[in-house]
Structure formats: C-alpha cells, structure tokens
C-alpha cells in the first residue's frame, strides 16, 4: 500500500509483506477458532449442509428428468463441483473483504489505516472463517463423483487444465469479492449488490450455459468474465461446444483472464481507498 507513484520493486515488496501479514492474522484466527472445537465442528457441518442444498435441488431435478439443457447429471455435477470449489476457495480466503461498508460506517476502517499492514490484507484476514471449508469439501466430493462417473480420458494436459481452471476460477471470484468491497467505498450500504455476482455467479455456473439466454452467456463471458471460471474450460473437458461458438483457444485463457482481473481489481481497490482517504466517509 505504498502511496504516491508506486515503484515496481516497492509494489512487489508490499505484496509479499501483505501476503505474509495476511498469513499471520489468519493463523491467529484459526488458533482462536480451534479453541472451541465442538462449535467449529458444528459450524463446519452447517456450512457443508447449507452449501449442499443447491446440489440436492439439482438431484431432485434429475429425479424428474434425464437431462437439463442437454447435459446429464454427471456433466452438471462436474460444472457444479468446479464452480463450487473455485467459489469456496475465494470465499474462504477473501470472503470477509465484503465488510468495507460496515467498517466505514462504524469507523474501524480508520483503525486499519493506522497499522503498517496493507488494508486489504487486514480486511480479508479479519474473522477468517475456517468453517467455509465446508463448501470446498462438499464441492470436491461432488466433483470427485462426477469425474468417476464421466469416464473422461485424463491425460496430464487435461488434469492440468482442470487444476488451472479451479485456481483461476478462485482468483476471478476473489476479484469479484474485492471489487465488491472496493465499490462500498463509494456506496457503503450496497454490500448486497455483490451477492448477485458472487453467490449469483456460482449458482449460474452450476448449470450448463445452454440453459441460459445467449445474451446472458455473452454478458458473463465478456463483461463479468465468469464464464472463464469453469464454463469454457469445462466444456472442452466434457467435449462440448460452447453455445456462443467462441474460438477454441479461449478455453485455455482462464489464467490470463484471472491475471487481468487481478490487475483491474488492484487498480479499483487503490482508487476506492484513495477516495475514502480524501472524503473520510
């Protein structure tokens, strides 16, 4: 969080320090959570169960039909699992970045600014909720089941694509969380808008793109690039064509899109913080 014109070296140094600081704040919260093991176990189970509901709804749908938008249950489960794990990772690591509005309102944003640690690190690590592993575990189980049932030919390249998809997806969702937080520097009460993109986004990506209108698919490909979280790479792994007929190379573009998102998010976050520091409200 160097102010003024950033130098590349300084930015890198800040980033490393930011990640380290994030790490030790998180470690503190994990230790504190583990002091109440029974309560933690219960919350983990609750998180697992709540996030599983979406898949329960999908299973009920498939108790009535054989295919949805031309996709079978294991195929939908594959989309569901990848979306869920990517979103779960970002929710675990950056989910609390949405508390910007609340912190501005109660004045504790100022407290964060008086400490020698990047504000974003402090914000994202604060009240780190390990129970959010529940969603990741649940999504991984569904994903594992889908992979077993689908009988795809897992070459090393395809395995690499699967992992890069989930990690890039987590980065893209993470950017949405941070952008949502940054947006609240300007509109403090609007925290719920980002739910449309985070929770809404992960719900959308649990279903095949063929289910949705082309305009909507185009929107989440080019405007909010959620299609790169799983749709485009997953369709390739499933051997399906994407409904927009995009060039095949885009199926591998998720890491690049994720990097671009991170750059844009970094700039918007800085602008938000700068706006806060000049208005103080």
């Amino acid at each position: 969080m160097a102010d003024g014109t950033p130098r590349p070296r300084a930015v890198l140094g800040d980033a490393v320090w930011g990640v380290r600081a994030y790490g030790f704040i998180v470690a503190m919260w994990v230790r504190s959570t583990m002091a109440y093991r029974a309560s933690f176990a219960m919350m983990l189970a609750a998180n697992f169960a709540t996030t599983f509901l979406d898949f329960a709804a999908i299973m009920i749908m498939f108790s009535q039909v054989d295919a949805l938008g031309g996709f079978t249950l294991p195929e939908v489960a594959f989309l569901y699992g990848t979306s869920c794990v990517a979103f779960g990772l970002s929710d675990l690591l950056l989910g609390t970045a949405e508390r910007v509005g609340r912190r501005v309102r109660d004045g504790t944003m100022d407290v964060l600014l008086t400490r020698p640690v990047p504000v974003l690190s402090q914000l994202a690590a604060d009240r780190f909720a390990l129970r959010r592993l529940g969603r990741i575990i649940q999504g991984s189980l569904v994903l594992g089941w889908a992979v077993l049932r689908l009988d795809l030919d897992w070459t090393p390249g395809r395995v690499a694509l699967l992992f890069s998809m989930v990690l890039s997806g987590a980065a893209i969702f993470g950017c949405v969380f941070v952008l949502g937080g940054a947006f609240q520097f300007w509109a403090q009460d609007a925290s719920e808008v980002q739910n449309a993109f985070t929770y809404g986004g992960t719900t959308l990506l649990q279903y095949p793109p063929t289910v949705f209108g082309k305009e909507l698919v185009r929107g989440v490909t080019f405007v909010v690039p959620l299609a790169f979280v799983n749709w485009l790479p997953a369709l390739r792994l499933l051997g399906r064509d994407d409904p927009l007929g995009l060039p095949g190379g885009l199926d591998f573009a998720s890491p690049a899109v994720a990097l671009l998102c991170c750059a844009v998010t970094g700039l918007v976050w800085r602008a938000g913080l700068r706006a806060y520091r000049s208005t103080g409200s």
Partner: peptide, 19 residues
C-alpha cells in the same frame, strides 16, 4: 441493492426452470 440481487437470482432460476 437487495432488489438488484433478488432480480439477478430470479433470472438465473427462471432460466433453469425453463430448461
């Protein structure tokens, strides 16, 4: 903000129900 989010979810669910 809540209206916006409800509307977005409405669209997502509506499309899955159509399918």
């Amino acid at each position: 903000a809540g209206v916006f989010t409800n509307t977005v979810f409405g669209f997502i669910l509506a499309y899955t129900f159509i399918a």
